[in-house]
Amino acid sequence: MMKPEPYVVAENVTFRYPDGTVALRDINLRFAEGDFVALIGQNGSGKTTLSKCLNGLFKPTEGRILVDGLDTRHTSITKMAVRVGYVFQNPDHQLFNSTVWDEIAYGPRNIQLPKAEVEERVREAAEVVGLDESTFEQHPFFLPKGLRQRVAIASILALRPHMIIVDEPTTGQDVKQSLEIMDFLTRLHEERGHIIVIITHDMPIVARYARRTVLMAHSQILADGPTRSVFAQTDVLAEAFVEPPQITQLAQRCADLGFAAGTLSVQEMLEQFRSLAARRRA
């Protein structure tokens, strides 16, 4: 298989806030076609700053970020918005139109698309997130939180960014709602080929959905690789104050019995248990 060309390349990126705080230190990172990535780490480890650098809201103080071959420092915010979409954690911060329709159409209108095209994109984005037509004329402010989040995601989708970053998609949602949102992001990934990055503290969600995990701590990247192998690095996780999912912890504590440190699901655990038990009986 041909190795896919990276869509985003961050080279030696350092970011300093105007008051001098270093939020990112010498970050090297690539995102390529087919990536479904979880960005994890403590609050304040630099996850959100990194994401805002990736879509050009912040410009790196040192180093550079290339998105689709364009240097974020010299690319207009409009050009960036159609390449990397960023969904903010609190939907209330990004809903400012008086109807759901206008809210989703805001982006496409901003890049001055013809009216027919705007309409097509709004309908499509609404359909993807499962908003039906009855909501179009409603005020986003009146919708329940779960729906507000969907409107927020749809408003980003309407710009058709190739890469979508979602900041804490599951905060405040119950488990069922979280799974729904994640399933829907997975569909976007599989059926439409979007590169998806989620920022989250929810480790079972990471284990279940993300093929690749980037672990951040102290403004740096501590680990980057297949989720399985990142969760297997117990010492690195401990350094970043991150605990893997419970089932992974169980496997790790029983590693001497033959369980794999990178066990991600109950199903995998059961299979290992059965083969180990069978071997013991033999």
Partner: peptide, 20 residues
């Protein structure tokens, strides 16, 4: 009823169901 138990509980529950 939409309660998703932690991995350890679920794991042992399945073992119990299978008589293991």
């Amino acid at each position: 009823h939409d309660v998703f138990p932690p991995g350890v509980v679920e794991f042992f529950y399945h073992l119990k169901q299978a008589g293991e």
